[in-house]
Design a protein around this nucleic acid. Sequence first.
DNA 1: TTAGGGTTAG
Length: 484
Amino acid sequence: MLECQVLPNNFTYPFVLKACAGIGDLNLGKSVHGSLLKFGFDGNNHVLNTLVHMYCSCKGGIQIGRKLFDEMTKNDSVPWSAMIGGYVRLGRSNDAVDLFRQMQIQGVCPDEITMVAVLCACTDLGALELGRWVESLIEKRKLNKSVELNNALIDMFAKCGDVDKALKLFRTMNERSIVSWTSVIVGLAMHGRGLQAVSLFQEMIRDGVEPDGVVFIGLLSACSHSGFVEKGKEYFDLMRKEFAILPKIEHYGCMVDMLCRAGHVREAVEFVQKMPIEPNSIVWRTLVNACRTHSELKLGENLAKQLIQNEPTLEANYVLLSNIYAKMSHWEEKTKTREVMDKKGMRKIPGSTMIELNNKIYRFVAGDMSHNQFKEIFEMVDEMGREMKRAGYVPSTSEVMLDIDEEDKEDNLNRHSEKLAIAFALMNTPPGTPIRIVKNLRVCNDCHSATKFISKIYNREIIARDRSRFHHFKDGLCSCKDFW
DNA sequence: TTAGGGTTAG
């Protein structure tokens, strides 16, 4: 277009900019922006909106997008939706929510598209209170409940811990797309409700909905999280034979995960060796992690070394190897691995736990002393430790990946971010109310066992979302039945 | 007659 003789006009630009956004090409987008200025631009808001969207959809462009956004007049929801959606895509969900609050303050009415973006931010943060507030706004404003908006609500409720509400919503929808089915199946999978996920999939087929590759990922992950190894294998075959969907690396990855979780590590290795497509590093990491949890340590060490050779710049690989050495009590080699990481300037992502209280989100890291109440929190954690021990809890000090004595290891465990967050919640919420926490990593063995005790001692339901699934703790038991 | 949106293993 830039080289043609016909002058582009304000009707042409949105199409072209949208295309740039679609392929995420910042340079191309910038050159279109340049031509727009060159040919004269009358400040048409449709074009400005698309410019904001384009910059917010391209890697490295969000700052320019924000600058344009700040400078333009914003009387309707469109630029706000574009900007909020941009933050969500970048994983800056807190910024997305802040901007939404700003929009409220400025009195601009959100529409259903804004709400979809805000709900995505809630989903990412695991912020159920906030999500419920957004739902109430949707009702209050009587916004059009499009399929997309309902899907975003289903996904939010499922991933923020209220999967029953997600199911209820799904049942009330008059019109459903494959995404609606997938959202609810994935949600059930995350909560370990594999039987329900499988039966919903069967219902979907009976209803004549054509499955796609994505819904099979949800289905296989449901089988994986519930330990349905044979069923998972059947569905994996069915994909190709019945529905002519060629399994992709993600599907193979689900199968490896499923075998690993069930403890069939050797079978998983054979499966990977026989795969018709090249396994990716995610598949290898799944295997190495399983070698650690199921004590196939020598095999895990070899695979992890191989991974480091293939991807020497990825810190996750070094963390895996280091954790395997810790479990082997090979402290010297563990230290060496850490030193290599230090030299390369790599740092492990710190584990953190988030909790929502009175419309505020609090984030804790291990040994966190940045909170106003940190002294009280530490005292509470110590008290919890004493109560738990009285009830029969034994700290699993083998979880502590440090070469220090047992007593220090216990202290270290007690300062884990989830214990701090739970202590904070016990102190600041009325007795008997459920506690919801969101972790950025997978919950460790010790915190898993401790949280079971806490749920019984303090008579609280504790709902924890970790990186891979939900754990509902109640009366000293967890919904995952220790299968995770 | 042009602008912003939903699902994906570890």
